[in-house]
Write a protein that binds this DNA or RNA. Structure first.
Lengths: 222, 222
DNA sequence: ACTGATAATGACCTTCGGGTCAGTAAAAGT
DNA sequence: ACTTTTACTGACCCGAAGGTCATTATCAGT
């Protein structure tokens, strides 16, 4: 029990180890319920050590948020600049990335959850995340949709101006996995397929021949 | 300042007043950050009084959850049993209710937020909410979609088996209003219109005449 | 008016957890 | 070897907040 582990000095590795431990715990229990003592233990150090590398608990969380912003969108931007693909292909690729990197990544889920749950405590961070992640994604998607509309691939519908409605189900899936997955697990693959199909084709049967744009459809364009 | 307000005995009204105050505060600050002292003050009583009516903070929250479960679905069920309407009309009515009662109701947003944020603390409550609200809604919507499919109004697509994908954007809107509305306000009316249009018609242009089911569409039916 | 019953109070208790810092031990310098 | 530097430790501090209870105020019944 009291085996007095041999102290080691590893200044270089500590920050990463502490961040990793913190991410896990924030993902499991949220910000408020995570104790710094626990973070320290999981990182294999004493509580005081954590405070050598991060001034406060909040700064620790901020580091996590900042270090998880960029990677997703590098991929995204690459994909979207193959603009010879059809919207259908493009959207499928985008959704693949979103589901893999956002819905299925424990780290990013954790960030999302804490921001939703306890965002009021750090409004600047919420603003930062919105600007760097959400707004960025929104613009990217908005450009794709607008381009597709201009090429005549998709209808000039409201969703083109409000891309958030397109990725809505993915956000819901993230929330679901964080909260209700024990009660009713979500099959991500299946959900993603349904999402893609719904967004591209809608629920209604294709209008039969005559009357082109109209028919039984409602709520349509602009 | 120290005006020593005249104490009043109002056993009957207290619980409601306390619940109302608590809802407001949970909505503003979440569960953990809301202090019982504050709840008491806002309800116009002293802290001890709150504990005359609710054993613990958690029980106070449980009461809020339980008392906010049923009302939405009474409306919902009524609407859905006018089964002579088209899916388009039905879905529009359902989304109207969902956006009004869930996305725009501070109380229900608060419940949702606390469950997402701090649900780990009360797994039984999460399970309860899932069973009574989400699963119920899912089944209701699932039945509507299945019926519409059988009537031939909508395609036999994956979304019929996974109704959650249909209301996904509404969930996102709820989250958004709780978290990012300061950074970028959401126009609910517009968002709802876009949502309905997207879900019914999809993004792609209607397939032109021949080839009926297929065409440029991908990821389609079952 | 008096009094028993009880709604209401708020000072107090207790626990808990973020943050500190005097001290310890592992490297680096000589 | 010995000293110096500094990464590291964990007992301690202290404010905060959930929950308690002896006391006080209000009201109903007589």
């Amino acid at each position: 029990m009291a085996q007095d582990k041999p102290r080691k000095r590893r200044k270089a590795e500590r920050p990463q180890e502490i961040l990793a431990a913190a991410v896990e715990l924030f993902a499991e229990k949220g910000f408020a319920l995570t104790q710094m003592k626990e973070v320290a233990t999981r990182a294999g150090v004493a509580k005081g050590t954590v405070y050598l590398y991060f001034k406060t608990k909040q700064e620790l969380f901020e580091e996590i948020v900042r270090s998880n912003v960029s990677p997703v969108f590098n991929q995204m931007e690459q994909v979207l600049h193959q603009s010879d693909s059809s919207v259908a292909e493009l959207l499928e690729k985008v959704l693949n990335i979103v589901y893999r990197e956002l819905v299925e990544s424990p780290t990013r889920r954790a960030v999302m959850r804490v921001l939703i749950a306890e965002g009021r405590q750090f409004p600047e961070l919420v603003e930062f995340y919105h600007r760097e992640v959400l707004q960025f994604a929104e613009r990217l998607l908005g450009m794709v949709l607008a381009a597709a509309r201009d090429k005549g691939e998709i209808r000039d519908c409201l969703a083109v101006r409000e891309p958030r409605v397109v990725i809505g189900p993915a956000v819901m899936a993230t929330i679901w996995r964080m909260t209700f997955d024990d009660a009713a697990p979500l099959n991500i693959q299946q959900f993603m397929q349904a999402h893609l199909d719904l967004v591209l084709n809608g629920l209604l049967k294709p209008t039969s021949c005559e009357a082109g744009e109209n028919g039984s459809r409602i709520g349509g364009g602009v």
